[in-house]
Design a protein around this nucleic acid. Structure first.
Lengths: 163, 163
DNA sequence: CAGTATCCTGTCCGATACTG
DNA sequence: CAGTATCGGACAGGATACTG
């Protein structure tokens, strides 16, 4: 839907549907089987089938047979799937911190110490948090369309003028 | 929908609909007005109205009158809205890195140097990346329900047994 | 310019029932 | 256990037309 160019759109197409992140959260906790997802989430079986399928199609989960007779399947995270975990963690942390009802029902902890962790997004090279909108800005990438490039050229010029 | 307890569910209720993140991305780039959003995104006016309303209702945008006659309004990010930016950036970066079509059309850069930035989610205290699923785990928070607590107690016991 | 109102199609999603 | 099939209601979302 809409423009497939923006990386956000593509991300949303892959994991943006309502149940998908909840489902992945279950995967991150180590669950792999249809009935586990069904019980944990309270999702209907039809929807679950559909969501699992798009996740598999997008290379985020892998469907694997773990028993011959009877035939049994499980869904395991791929590397791509695992790489999504920190992002989902950041999303949940934002919900915990910013959305009303401050009591937190789920948190992230250090597995060894049990100490609570506060996720923050930083620049890998400098380690600096990305929360300053003036310090870090979006820009047209190598494969940007003309429209995208025009937009970001204009914004850059505007910022320059503001200084 | 589903269980409102999980912070992920609440996050999704606030910003999980299809257009919402795209719309916020426009806000982060400095756009504030109805017609700008409409033109940039290609969203229908009815849907735009609806999305803006839920964003305002959730305290992420603020509707502000900037002209008396004729009456004109603009939508500006609240602090809560701005705090969502790093997370969206991380989401877009994941899409850039992991989803097919590797050519990137939009990237994040350092505004001063123009150098590309690689967003990564870390623990604020230690600065360590959260990408090791064994080092950082979810746990029941102070306000967790019995079901939640049972789940995470069981998982913790399992991890202990595995060692 | 900044929406509102209406209509239409497609999809989300739960409920229920069925299968090997 | 791991789904498939079908139903039906609610909502997403575009298109179009209208308003001050």
């Amino acid at each position: 839907m809409a423009d497939r160019e923006c990386p956000l759109s593509r991300t949303l197409d892959a994991v943006g549907e309502w149940w998908t992140l909840l489902l992945l959260h279950d995967c991150f906790d180590g669950f792999t089987r249809f009935d586990q997802f069904e019980a944990n989430l309270g999702i209907s079986s039809g929807m679950l089938t559909k969501r699992l399928k798009t996740l598999v199609d997008n290379g985020i989960l892998e469907r694997r047979q773990y028993s011959e007779r009877p035939p049994r399947f499980e869904y395991v995270l791929t590397d791509t799937g695992r790489s999504l975990r920190p992002v989902i963690v950041a999303l949940a942390a934002w919900g915990n911190a910013q959305l009303p009802r401050r009591e937190r029902s789920m948190i992230l902890v250090d597995a060894r110490t049990g100490r609570e962790v506060e996720p923050v997004v930083v620049d890998r090279r400098t380690g600096k948090p990305l929360d300053d909108p003036d310090a870090y800005v979006f820009a047209a990438g190598p494969a940007a369309s003309e429209a995208f490039r025009t937009r970001y050229d204009a914004l850059a010029a505007k910022r320059k003028a503001a200084r």
